[in-house]
Simulated scan of single mutants.
Amino acid sequence: MKPSLAPRSPGEISDRDYVNSLARGLEVICAFTRTRPRMTLSEIARATGMTRATVRRFLLTLVREGYAETDGKYFSLRPKVLELGYSALSSISFLDVAQPILTRLAETLRESCFLAVLSGHDLFYVARANADRLVNVGISVGTRVPAYSVSTGRMLLAALPEDALHAYLDQVTLTKLTPNTVTSKVKLRSLVEDARRQDYCIVDQEMEEGLAAISVPVRDGQGTVIAALNVCCPATRITPADMGGRILTELRTASQRITAALQH
């Protein structure tokens, strides 16, 4: 039997195996916080204890790879950096907690239910549960859709720091996918702000004709939004107005159960 190559604890990692540049690059990313979403090169150097030259190389690498952006003076993270967190969301702990709750929600509502995260300008579905019906919504795990066109996307955009939301709106191209799709950035910002204020979002046939959906945020134990929980229904069966009743109540209960389970 071959010995395991994985160390049993962090203390067993030798200096030879330690990649210092990776560790310092992660420090640069972690220097950005909700209260410090935009910083100058000097501010990041002070926050990390690195030299300006070292920080500059890491930042320009992040910019080139699409994880950060700069206006020439200030640097900020782009929504793509959330892809780094997708590994954690995809881990067995998160999905093992979320999937049974998602399945129970689909059984209770008899509608298709989904969990999704933001990945760049797209919404990325990480889990689903089918309804007890002959025909279910045809969205599979791994599907990507434009974030602006779906309730899950708008709910997660609402959780972004203001600078990241501004960057998204500045860069995204709003394509008309159906007659209902919102293509005005001013209108989209207003709808995202509504989702933030209400803590839920309803979208009526903007990604695909015939489908309406409602979403609520899923938070970790610290209150940070880590995903969006979604119910998608044929618009002929349930109107957007109807979604604000029992479906919203069940969605919020399921979201709270996921948060509580993640704390154990």
Rank of each mutant, 00 (worst) to 15 (best):
C232W: 04
C30D: 10
S87W: 14
L59H: 02
S112L: 04
S4V: 10
L82G: 02
E43G: 05
M39C: 08
D122L: 11
A31H: 10
V145L: 15
P179Q: 01
M243I: 06
G223I: 01
S112I: 08
D170R: 14
M243L: 15
L262T: 04
D163F: 09
L5C: 08
E69M: 10
R197H: 09
T103P: 06
E107T: 09
A212Q: 05
L262I: 07
T173H: 14
P37L: 06
E162S: 14
L26W: 07
G245R: 07
G85H: 05
E111L: 12
S190P: 02
D170H: 10
F58H: 15
I202T: 06
T54F: 12
N130P: 10
A213I: 03
I44M: 08
A213N: 15
I226C: 02
D71Y: 00
F58M: 09
E208Q: 14
D132I: 15
L95M: 03
M50D: 00
R144M: 07
A227K: 01
I101A: 02
V117Y: 04
S76H: 13
L59A: 03
G25Y: 02
V231G: 01
A88S: 15
L211G: 03
E111I: 04
L251K: 04
I139P: 07
D15G: 05
A235V: 11
V137M: 09
V182S: 11
A228M: 09
V55N: 00
D132C: 15
I238Q: 10
A254Y: 01
V55S: 00
L177I: 06
R38T: 04
G210D: 05
A167V: 06
Y200A: 07
D194A: 13
G11H: 02
V28S: 02
Q198A: 11
C30H: 11
L169T: 08
E193V: 08
G244I: 03
F75V: 08
R8S: 09
P161C: 06
A116S: 15
E193K: 12
R104A: 12
N130T: 10
T236A: 14
A131F: 03
V81N: 01
N20M: 13
R257N: 13
I139A: 11
E69S: 14
